[in-house]
Structure formats: structure tokens, C-alpha cells
């Protein structure tokens, strides 16, 4: 049986704990990854890239990432691709992605903090 709340201070502490838990899961995260899912991206395999990202982030236990989807970025020949924005606000565009590349990016960049230069789209 759950412990009874004995006074207003305990209730306030419980509220703060619940809020912190919510912020952890639902609030702005440190890393934002946007998978580009226009027609070109979907045809090139963006759905599989998204599925691989979901699996890899779960396996890596990376709680600091929020996933988004967007339309075509205009670089159709580089699809499937995603844009990673790190906690400093710096953008990294990864292109021609495969499950293997997604694994490496999650391990090396999301977990390790070092961009995977080989897979970055050069400006």
C-alpha cells in the first residue's frame, strides 16, 4: 500500500518529483533528431531509418533525444536523411542513411558526442 501523505510539504515534494519525471520524458530534450519524410525520403527508406532510430535509441537507453518528422528538405538525392541538433544548437545533416549507419551515429554521436564525419552531408 502506498505511503500516506501526512502534510502539505510532503504533497508539494511529491508534486515536484512528478513534475521532474514529466519534464525528463516530455519536456525539451538535449538532442533533437528530425527525419525528413517527404515523398522522396519515404521512397528512399525514411520509414526504415525512423524504425532503426527508435530501436537504437531504446537499446542505447538514450533518454535525452526527441524524434520529429518533417517534409522534404530539397536534397532528394541524399535521402534518406535526418538532421540532428545537439544541445548547443548546432545542426548536423546525415544523408544516404542505412540501418548500419544509424547504429554508428547513435553510438558515436548521440551517446559519445562525436559527429560521424563520413556520413555528414557536406555543404
Amino acid at each position: 500500500m502506498a505511503n500516506k501523505i501526512k502534510n502539505p510539504q510532503e504533497l508539494a515534494a511529491l508534486k515536484e518529483k512528478a513534475k521532474a519525471d514529466l519534464d525528463l520524458r516530455m519536456g525539451p530534450k538535449e538532442i533533437q533528431i528530425t527525419v525528413h519524410m517527404g515523398t522522396c525520403g519515404i521512397a528512399a527508406g525514411a520509414r526504415d531509418v525512423m524504425a532503426a532510430l527508435m530501436d537504437e535509441l531504446t537499446t542505447a537507453g538514450a533518454q535525452n533525444v526527441t524524434l520529429h518528422q518533417s517534409g522534404c528538405l530539397g536534397l532528394c538525392d541524399r535521402e534518406p536523411m535526418f538532421t540532428l541538433v545537439d544541445k548547443a544548437g548546432q545542426e548536423f545533416r546525415y544523408g544516404k542513411l542505412t540501418k548500419k549507419k544509424v547504429h554508428r551515429i547513435v553510438q558515436q554521436h548521440v551517446v559519445g558526442g562525436s559527429p560521424v564525419a563520413d556520413d555528414l552531408i557536406q555543404a
Binding site: M26, V35, R47, D48, M50, A51, M54, L67, H68, Q69
Partner: peptide, 15 residues
């Protein structure tokens, strides 16, 4: 095809 993976990716990215 894999409709479950397709629709769950939409759910994941559009809360």
C-alpha cells in the same frame, strides 16, 4: 507492408 512500423513512427514523432 509493415503498417505497424509505419504508423508507430507517426505516433512517436507527433505527440
Amino acid at each position: 507492408g509493415d503498417l505497424a512500423a509505419t504508423l508507430s513512427s507517426v505516433v512517436c514523432t507527433n505527440p
